[in-house]
Design a binder for these strands. Structure first.
Lengths: 252, 252
DNA sequence: CGAATAATTGACCGAAATCAATACGGGTGG
DNA sequence: CCACCCGTATTGATTTCGGTCAATTATTCG
């Protein structure tokens, strides 16, 4: 199931073989869902948590006027609703933005881990708090950045996370989102996202086209977005790469 | 130390006498800080977590232009930086808005709880995820609500939380914040907060004056703010009170 | 090829920010 | 006891960023 990716690129030590084994044994099945599926519905009690093997999943709520607002985004290697284990009910939806593959972990087995593997429990706890740290950054983005800065921040954050899992080479990564979805994530309309993206392109900061993000000036983009990746707890090398201060080894 | 308040008014069962005892024994000292103190500084490794006995503490970051942005607010009875236990370093500051009294819990003792008390660990984990749920609502507020609705939502949330701890009678509660701080919490300028508060007063929804919030029409305020308290996991009665559907017993 | 979805561009509008005064209120010290 | 101050609150005039409405052009995919 490749649970190694849970801590890949992080400042913490890797999971031990025993811990990996324990997690693998906790999986009851693998579920495939097509793009657009609401994987977990707001307010419905759940008895299992999902590890995202591949694909992209968004965390969103729908407001009174029917508009969707994204409060989180997840990629392959994320334990996307581990927090449903202590909480039991989610206050938001999880929706597949692409076709996804999900490993299902029943909560009984997580209870077993809680009882028998305190260290692993602490690490799973850590993961849920990493999500909380991202939530705080998403708030920061909304409350204090201009539209161009918000997009810059979002694209830098995503770049940093995807460097950690080896999906981004540091300057270029796939991102299957529409401009409207980018708007849902940054609190902007699709129209304005379009204009702002043009601006970023014209300033030679980055290009987003046909589901690929290409960063021309990472340092500039990070500066515009007031982006510092510390809250992602990445290991020091990746941290530097995410700021554009050093090149990633895989960068051509 | 009155750790009962940790789950007071929540949909979950109360802490057992043993668990209360364990938590009480985990406290190494009680610390008093005057208003304005930065209790925990962003980026500085910490080896203890703080339980807020009394007073108000804000969670904030400072942006490039020096403006402060609030990403959370805590009152007496909240375990304010429990997440520092798995994370080790915070990505934001904790600042005392009033004089505060803090119970200090060294992380070694939390490690002991993690090893020996899986149930209690699960409940502490739950508490940190409650904060995450509030973060999501704060994002929601910023991305989808107008200025009046943001303030309405904020005031309803705070009311709900303070009903749970017995501080609000359902329509009236003390809130030691300036209009500027209200703005930091809702992503608005002090000037605009002032105008919007006047609007809420004129619509007979609520009044905020000399550090007291008085709600004249709770149902209306909740509707304006698109507020639903489900994410706070309050018990059903308090949930209804927080929406203004029933009166709280303590309401005169 | 054609239908649906996504992207792009233009004209206009409006909510909240900004800039700038003024008023209030409650402590402090003369 | 009153005068002074400083932080907070209030109000007005103006600007601006991003939203809304509306239309057109690209893409993608069956």
């Amino acid at each position: 199931m490749n649970f190694e990716r849970l801590f890949q690129g992080r400042r913490t030590e890797a999971l031990s073989p025993v811990e990996l084994e324990v997690l693998n044994n906790a999986v009851s099945q693998v579920r495939e869902c097509p793009a657009g599926t609401v994987v977990v519905k707001q307010g419905v009690p759940v008895h299992e948590s999902l590890y995202l093997v591949s694909g992209t999943v968004s965390r969103n709520v729908v407001d009174a006027s029917g508009r969707r607002h994204m409060m989180g985004l997840h990629f392959g290697g994320d334990f996307i609703d581990l927090h449903a284990f202590p909480l039991r009910v989610l206050d938001h939806n999880l929706a597949a933005l692409t076709d996804v593959s999900l490993a299902v972990v029943p909560h009984e087995r997580l209870t077993g881990i809680l009882k028998d593997y305190p260290d692993l429990t602490g690490r799973l706890w850590f993961l849920t708090l990493l999500d909380a740290a991202m939530h705080r950054q998403w708030s920061f983005r909304l409350s204090s950045l201009s539209a161009p800065a918000r997009l810059a921040h979002f694209l830098c954050e995503t770049n940093a996370r995807l460097i950690a899992t080896g999906v981004s080479d540091g300057r270029r990564y796939p991102l299957s989102m529409t401009q409207a979805e980018l708007g849902e994530a940054c609190g902007l309309t699709n129209v304005h996202v379009n204009r702002v993206l043009r601006g970023l392109r014209e300033q030679r900061l980055c290009t987003f086209r046909s589901s690929v993000v290409e960063i021309h000036d990472l340092e500039g983009l990070a500066a515009l977005g007031e982006f510092t990746p510390d809250y992602l707890y990445l290991d020091e090398t990746i941290n530097q790469q995410a700021l554009g201060l050093i090149r990633s080894p895989s960068y051509g």
